[in-house]
């Protein structure tokens, strides 16, 4: 009887101890100039709001490797319990991530990798897979045949390269033909300009594949100004709730393929680590496709 009492007391105290335990987590974002990264921070904030025991400190490195390194050092000095980081580049940030990890501070790396194995968990999506799925979707949608305009992001950036290469793999073997391709540097005005050139040169275009949704929107504006927006399908990548998903709802894009931010998964993972649970070294995020038919139901998961 007595032992039972002690046991229940222990249980109580441990439960009590857990609920009063609070954690501070530092989040270092490489830049907030891109809407996608603004969304990632918003997703983290929303997920963290459901956990009062978790406080997240946000820092924006404004696209500067050394500033981001300094931010992580500041987190270490401030004695945070864990670090979330979406690095600008791998090499310059590997060292400071390793230092933190070896000091026993869990580090969750988001979207872009660091070198080596000295981090707790990497969470990211696969651009190549998304490009491939998009290519296959377009082949199916166009009946295996058609003339395509590809508006590429920056071909010196990995997302641009992967979204391009994956797409080419996806349409391989079909009669889909890319008749015009141009770099639009992820920017809508550039995409509109390049699309105008494509429209001037080709009297028939069946689909436009843009590496991000704003570019697909810019292409649609160009086609609409030429009175040709009904002639072709517009497909983009990212599917941010206030961007791509809205364009799909408005009937501008035929589809948008999500490039998930992983903000929610990051918060879930960091909580598991802090509670002492084991987490996998790598989490590959599942992507969803949003079309006119399924956008109201929250899209459909890709295999």
């Amino acid at each position: 009887m007595r032992s039972l009492f002690v046991l229940s007391l222990l249980c109580l105290s441990s439960v009590h101890g857990q609920s009063s335990r609070t954690w501070t987590v530092g989040m270092s974002q490489c830049n907030l100039g891109e809407p996608w990264r603004v969304q990632m921070n918003a997703d983290i904030r929303r997920a963290a709001d459901d956990h009062p025991e978790l406080t997240v400190m946000f820092k924006d490195a404004q696209n500067d490797n050394l500033r981001q390194r300094a931010h992580i050092e500041e987190f270490l000095r401030a004695g945070v319990d864990a670090i979330l980081v979406s690095p600008k580049e791998a090499a310059p940030l590997t060292g400071v991530v390793r230092d933190a990890y070896r000091k026993g501070i869990p580090v969750i790396v988001l979207d872009r990798r660091v070198l080596g194995e000295d981090y707790t968990c990497f969470i990211g999506a696969d651009n190549r897979k998304i490009g491939r799925a998009l290519g296959k979707w377009l082949v199916q949608r166009l009946g295996g045949k058609g003339k395509i305009v590809e508006l590429k992001g920056l071909m010196t950036s990995t997302p641009g390269q992967d979204r391009h290469a994956g797409f080419r793999e996806g349409i391989k073997g079909s009669e889909l033909e890319v008749i015009f391709e141009a770099d639009m540097k992820w920017l809508e005005p550039n995409a509109r300009k390049e699309m105008e050139s494509a429209l001037a040169r080709f009297s028939r275009i069946d689909a436009v594949y843009a590496h991000n949704d704003p570019a697909a929107h810019g292409a649609w504006l160009a086609a609409r100004a030429a009175g040709r927006e009904q002639e072709m399908l517009f497909v983009g990548v990212d599917a941010l709730p206030h961007e791509g998903q809205v364009y799909v709802r408005q009937g501008i894009l035929a589809a948008s393929f999500e490039y998930p931010t992983g903000g929610k998964e990051a918060v879930e993972t960091v909580l598991r680590v802090l509670r002492g649970e084991k987490v996998p070294k790598e989490i590959t995020l599942l992507s969803r496709v949003f079309t006119r038919e399924n956008v109201e139901q929250g899209g459909e998961e890709l295999e």
Binding site: E181, A182, D183, K185, K193, E194, E196, S197, R201
Partner: peptide
């Protein structure tokens, strides 16, 4: 200049 480069799909 930009237009000529663009209609000829010249690389970045």
């Amino acid at each position: 200049l930009e237009k000529i480069l663009s209609i000829n799909a010249v690389g970045e």
